[in-house]
């Protein structure tokens, strides 16, 4: 394992190699070497299974982190490959040629995060949000509360009290800053 990670860090410039717990290691790879690295892991290192793909929106840093979770059945170890891509015009090489099921994840990533995977089969079709007209909902700038308020009605009998205003009314009426 360690010799493999050493080799990867040399040959593929992978960084941030962290053992999260026994059997799960995470590492970060550059976007341009990611596909080659994944192929190497599948064909030479025994990580034959793609558990899943997902993405994390680091809006503060202006990136999406794509997560490729791979499993090696022989060593029972899991490797989580992280790849940072620009949030603007987010696009990534499709890996459906490596694992056929990846096209489903990529279709989901396109719908929920707005990340494109050119060449991935049926990537532009609706996945689970039929008729969605908003920005992709897993993007952090998507205001879920605002969308909920606009789209759904509340049951009768709902109603909330603002703690600060309630305390002002009970504890210090006529005090504090002018209204």
């Amino acid at each position: 394992m360690n010799s493999m990670l050493e080799r990867l860090s040399k040959e593929f410039r992978v960084t941030d190699i962290t053992e999260r717990h026994p059997g799960l290691t995470t590492l970060t790879a550059d976007k341009d070497v990611a596909e080659t690295l994944l192929r190497e892991l599948r064909d030479r290192e025994g990580y034959t299974h793609l558990n899943f793909m997902t993405a994390i929106d680091y809006i503060e840093r202006g990136v999406f982190t794509l997560v490729y979770m791979l499993h090696n059945y022989a060593t029972k170890s899991t490797l989580s490959v992280h790849v940072n891509i620009d949030r603007v015009n987010a696009e990534m090489t499709s890996i459906h040629t490596l694992w056929a099921q990846a096209w489903t994840y990529q279709r989901e990533l396109r719908e929920l995060w707005g990340i494109n995977f050119p060449g991935s089969p049926r990537v532009e079709e609706d996945f689970c949000l039929e008729g969605w007209e908003e920005i992709p909902p897993m993007r952090r700038e998507f205001d879920t509360v605002e969308y909920c308020e606009r789209t759904f009605t509340s049951r009768e009998g709902r109603g909330t009290v603002n703690p600060r205003e309630h305390m002002a009314e009970i504890i210090f009426p006529n005090r504090g800053g002018d209204k």
């Binding site: 879920t144 509360v145 909920c148 308020e149 509340s154 049951r155 709902r158 109603g159 909330t160 009290v161 603002n162 703690p163 600060r164 309630h166 305390m167 009970i170 504890i171």
Partner: peptide, 28 residues
Amino acid sequence: CQNHAIDMVKVDGLEAHGGDSGLRPRFD
């Protein structure tokens, strides 16, 4: 709460005082 499933409501027997609004969350 991203779904507006919670309201803060007045509860019998609890009063606002320093450090406690006296309100409690009600779930929908």
